[in-house]
């Protein structure tokens, strides 16, 4: 469903991403790994429309999306999280999820002002959807707290829930396990698998936690200094000499 072809991104003299290709099929978890500064987040930024790539193509469900504005890409069903959590920290947890459903609730102003029945139903539906996902990530008890006051692990889960209420087809997670303790990482592991199994979402995952990556990925792409180094199943990657030298070896 997603195909990235020869993606390049240049910042002035720095070629941060150099001819990277990857593809994601439906019902698949694909990981991108590589040392710090390899260009993984930059690939995400190009895919989600934050940067206009300087070369290459990005096809989502057969449509070219490179260079489209970010909010349009997100509306197509490609939603991301951030390496450094970005919540609306002064809003409550549930309000964070309501903002994300802006599109589902996009009724005209008048019907909202006078609270027409159809507006009420839609509003109730989005509250229900929010409650469902909060329950799913174990934050229902904290629904009316300010998002900025949550613990770090909870903020990470809230960010994923916030993506899920938009009902995406493809979820892009940028280091979701960073800063989590082992128990939380395990929960995350199960959550991601369940997103794929139960909600039919494809996942692109950037992650440094090798056991997590090896555990849940269907396929892995390795990038080093902006260039693709290897790709394949976790088994193949584990045995790839280049990868061991460049990445796994140093860990």
């Amino acid at each position: 469903m997603l195909e990235v072809q020869n993606l390049s991104m240049r910042f002035g003299g720095l070629l941060a991403v150099d001819e990277v290709s990857l593809d994601v099929q439906e019902h698949e978890i694909v990981s991108i790994i590589g040392p710090n500064g390899a260009g993984k987040t930059t690939v995400f930024n190009c895919m989600s429309g934050f940067y206009k790539p300087t070369g290459g193509k990005i096809l989502f469900e057969g449509r070219e999306v490179q260079g489209k504005p970010d909010y349009k890409i997100s509306r197509l069903g490609m939603v991301r999280t951030f390496q450094h959590v970005r919540l609306f920290s002064q809003m409550t947890v549930v309000e964070n999820l309501l903002v994300a459903q802006h599109r589902h609730l996009n009724t005209n102003l008048i019907s909202g002002l006078i609270k027409t029945p159809s507006y009420r139903t839609k509003e109730q539906k989005s509250l229900d959807r929010a409650a469902y996902w909060l329950d799913r990530v174990g934050l229902l008890d904290l629904a009316n707290r300010e998002a900025g006051n949550l613990a770090y692990g909870q903020q990470r889960r809230l960010e994923i829930a916030r993506c899920m209420v938009t009902e995406p087809k493809l979820l892009m997670l940028d280091e979701p396990a960073a800063g989590l303790n082992p128990a939380e990482t395990k929960e995350l592991n199960q959550l991601i698998i369940s997103l794929k199994e139960d909600y039919n979402v494809s996942v692109v995952l950037i992650e440094h936690d090798m056991s997590l990556v090896m555990d849940i990925s269907d396929r892995i792409n390795v990038i080093n200094q902006g260039r693709p180094l290897a790709s394949g199943t976790p088994e193949e990657i584990r045995q790839n000499d280049d990868v061991i030298k460049a990445y796994l070896g140093e860990a």
Partner: peptide
């Protein structure tokens, strides 16, 4: 007051708080 509780009101606030996150969720600036 009513606007503030409606999706438009939340969108204003979201965009003010974190524009990048808001856009990543499909809000057009």
């Amino acid at each position: 007051r009513r606007f503030m509780r409606m999706p438009v009101g939340r969108a204003w606030e979201a965009l003010r708080e974190d524009e990048i996150a808001a856009r990543s969720l499909g809000l057009s600036r």
